[in-house]
Design a protein around this nucleic acid. Structure first.
Length: 105
DNA sequence: CAGTTGACGGCCC
DNA sequence: GGGGCCGCCAACT
């Protein structure tokens, strides 16, 4: 049936490949509407499936991670991304290199 | 049912 | 350049 906005967002986040990141606005735009940026944050906040939804691959437009992520410190998210080969500069992701570009479906 | 919140984004000062 | 305000939409209380 009709997928909720959350479902659409989760579907997009799940499609983020290894070693790449996407911004909330990016996810929102792919999910359907770019204004859902806040909704994306909320969706990941509830995060019903942390194992299937790599919420740590979702960052702000500046490439900076959200402090609210903090299930052990925002630094935790950075460590996970670095483990995937994502380079961090001053606590920010090099968006030019690692921002996920939506494949053309 | 109405009001408030929220892991953001963009524009203004 | 940094900080703050508003707006946008859906979910939660």
């Amino acid at each position: 049936m009709e997928k909720t906005t959350f479902e659409k967002i989760y579907d997009v986040v799940k499609q983020i490949p290894y070693g790449q990141v996407a911004t909330y606005g990016q996810v929102a735009a792919i999910a359907g509407n770019r204004r859902w940026a806040r909704v994306v944050g909320y969706a990941l906040h509830v995060n019903p499936d942390p194992e299937g939804i790599p919420c740590y691959r979702v960052v702000k437009k500046d490439g900076q991670v959200s402090e609210a992520f903090a299930f052990g410190g925002s630094n935790r998210q950075i460590e996970l991304l670095k483990a995937e080969g994502v380079e961090f500069i001053d606590g920010r992701v090099d968006m030019e290199q690692y921002q996920w570009e939506r494949p053309v479906f």
